[in-house]
Amino acid sequence: MGGGKDCRAAWLGGLVGLRLVDPDAAPEEPEVGIARGGGRVQKKLAEIVEQEVQTHPERPVEVFASDEHRLGLRPVTRRVWAPVDERPTALGHHRFAWLYVTAFVSPATGEVFWYLSNGISKPLFEALLASFAWEAGAGRERTIVLVIDNAGWHSEAGLTVPDGLRQVFLPPYTPELQPAETLWALVDEPVVNKHIASIAELDAIIAERCCHLAKQPDIIRGRAGFHWWPRKTNPN
């Protein structure tokens, strides 16, 4: 599902999607350095954006971030208000069936692309990259620098990366530097403290929620818009 222009459920998965990680995948060396602090990441991203501007001066350069989120039939619980001396309750039935939400977000503008799948794997991520690149106009309308973590299925070994899209890897164990991580509380909102009967029902609820959020760039930017994130660079 795209950034609000034509929002519809986009499912990718099947048997390939059920394989979580390519056993031969190895994490990439982080292109943004090994420091945990945001300062080095900010500096390196600025350098990479400048490189892409010099390489492709005819089109804008924009920095997106991407992350995956697992939701299932195990209830999502949060604290709630309750009368004094009364224990709050929430309906739930623990079952271990899952779907995955993948977000590609521009923190500077609030533009976001959502995809739902039934698993995670390198072939699936390759398909997601291709879909995102096409919908976002990577290589045609703009160059996209994509910031992701070092999960095995993200590694570039054996992965086809579309033209106009450059992957950049965060240092290990730095979720605080990933703007897409901030979106999951928004995605979870309609299922918090609720019993969901089936994956089909969960899929419908989350698809509707993602479509709604795709039309709310101000809300997305308010969450994911880190102050140090590179702004869109337009051609001279």
Score class of each variant (00 low, 15 high):
residue 1 M to F: 06
residue 7 C to V: 13
residue 9 A to S: 12
residue 16 V to Q: 12
residue 17 G to N: 08
residue 26 A to H: 15
residue 34 I to P: 10
residue 37 G to R: 15
residue 38 G to T: 05
residue 39 G to F: 01
residue 39 G to Y: 05
residue 42 Q to V: 09
residue 44 K to N: 15
residue 46 A to K: 11
residue 47 E to P: 01
residue 50 E to P: 02
residue 55 T to V: 10
residue 59 R to M: 15
residue 66 S to C: 07
residue 69 H to L: 03
residue 72 G to T: 02
residue 78 R to C: 13
residue 80 V to P: 08
residue 80 V to A: 14
residue 83 P to H: 04
residue 85 D to V: 06
residue 96 F to L: 05
residue 97 A to Q: 14
residue 102 T to Q: 14
residue 102 T to V: 08
residue 105 V to K: 09
residue 118 N to D: 15
residue 118 N to W: 05
residue 121 S to H: 05
residue 123 P to C: 04
residue 127 A to W: 04
residue 133 A to F: 01
residue 134 W to E: 15
residue 135 E to F: 03
residue 137 G to H: 09
residue 139 G to Q: 10
residue 146 L to A: 04
residue 153 W to I: 00
residue 161 V to H: 02
residue 162 P to F: 04
residue 170 L to C: 03
residue 173 Y to F: 04
residue 176 E to P: 00
residue 177 L to P: 01
residue 182 T to W: 01
residue 183 L to N: 08
residue 188 D to Y: 00
residue 193 N to F: 05
residue 193 N to R: 03
residue 193 N to V: 02
residue 193 N to A: 08
residue 195 H to F: 12
residue 195 H to E: 10
residue 197 A to F: 02
residue 199 I to G: 00
residue 201 E to I: 02
residue 207 A to L: 05
residue 209 R to Q: 13
residue 214 A to P: 01
residue 215 K to A: 14
residue 215 K to C: 06
residue 217 P to A: 02
residue 218 D to M: 06
residue 221 R to D: 11
residue 224 A to I: 07
residue 231 R to V: 05
residue 233 T to A: 12
residue 236 N to D: 12
